[in-house]
Design a protein around this nucleic acid. Sequence first.
RNA 1: GGUAGGGUGCCCGAGUGGCCAAAGGGGGCGGACUGUAAAUCCGCUGGCGGAAUGCCUUCGAAGGUUCAAAUCCUUCCUCUACCA
Length: 395
Amino acid sequence: MDLKKQVEIIKNNTFDLVSEAELIEKLKKGRPLRIKLGVDPSRPDLHLGHAVVLKKLKEFQDLGHQVVLIIGDFTARIGDPSGRSATRPMLTMEAVKENAISYQEQVFTILDREKTEVRYNGEWLDKMNFEDVIRLAAKYTVARMLERDDFDKRYKDNQPISVAEFMYPLAQAYDSVAIQSDVEIGGTDQLFNLLVGRKIQTDHGLESQIVLTMPIIEGTDGNLKMSKSYDNYIAFTDEPKNVYGKVMSIPDTLMMKYYRLLSDIDKTELDTLEKGLADGSVNPRDCKMRLGREMVKLLYNEEKATEAEAEFVKVFQKKDVPTEIPGLKLETDTVKLADLLVLSGVPSKSEAKRLIKQGGVKINDVKFEDPFEAIKLNAGDILRIGKRRFYKIEL
RNA sequence: GGUAGGGUGCCCGAGUGGCCAAAGGGGGCGGACUGUAAAUCCGCUGGCGGAAUGCCUUCGAAGGUUCAAAUCCUUCCUCUACCA
């Protein structure tokens, strides 16, 4: 493929690219480039936010380049540098390994296994002694560290920053030296860390890597970035129908972003689609339904996508009962309604009474509003709580 | 080491003796509506209790003062900033 075309593909959708000129120089050499992605095995649950970056890596692979996936086992074992959040717990060696395996299973739903080299950064970081660390640390200044947005902000807000936190970007940068990456990719929040890699590489006599960041996508709430801690994510391991449903719950305004960053639909078609949405000739619902299918396809396949959509139409548009409903085994056939809800997993009786009073409880499509009514149930009756919880009564 | 300021419900945050199960916001949940689990609007949001001006648990921890404590006192834990 000619150079221009290649650069265009690589540039598409990127947020930062440092720098295009250097990228062209590297591509001119004609050899496969080594594209680095560092991952944190303490949180092995991938979601669509990660998929944005993985899609880009896949594009590199399709252009014939080599992806190097670095599992940050060393950093995971040490834990959260700020020591304040539970989000990055210290992990044992075994836990890290387990997570790393699960990570790879998920990653390879998008990436090409053949063109991916997997490395653990403990391989080189474990070998460093204190002197090595200080020598590495000497190559970067505090002032430059404080350029990083979150450090800067926390420093100004009188929030704590531990010295250890300064070490993390350096460790990550050293990974780039160890594997001799030509390009490193990450989310926009990684820009600073990736740039440190450039400096540290040149200090070690290497050509500095190209840095490329991908936009962060907002989660299903439409506001905050997609993240497990905000519970607004669509996970690789979510069932197809939930992937589809969650996509349907994103705000309309977010649709095009998902389309552009995560679907395989080509750019000109998306432009037309976007225009259609703007002038009203495309129904936003249909547009979102297609997006739902695309996302299921991304994580599963075409067939699952069709199934998930059919299920959605059945349950939410026709307000029908889902095809598969979890069973609820009862000891007796007569129960007070509130107690029945508690048995189904509603956390407290007060909560159950609330749900009933608010009109959220139906049995066989009939609304019941008295929490104390003793209900006589038959096997096969359908208990519905709210819009999304269904149980089939078993006796 | 010294000084100052913090630790409140899922989260943020108000509250400095009773009117506090604790304002407000976010999130979550339920309903209406719809084009969807979008948007919008309304309601709910510690537990127990078929109800109560009822009981229990919750305001960093443990004690204490008081008829009464998230609020006052003591000790402790913990976080932060500034000065060393």
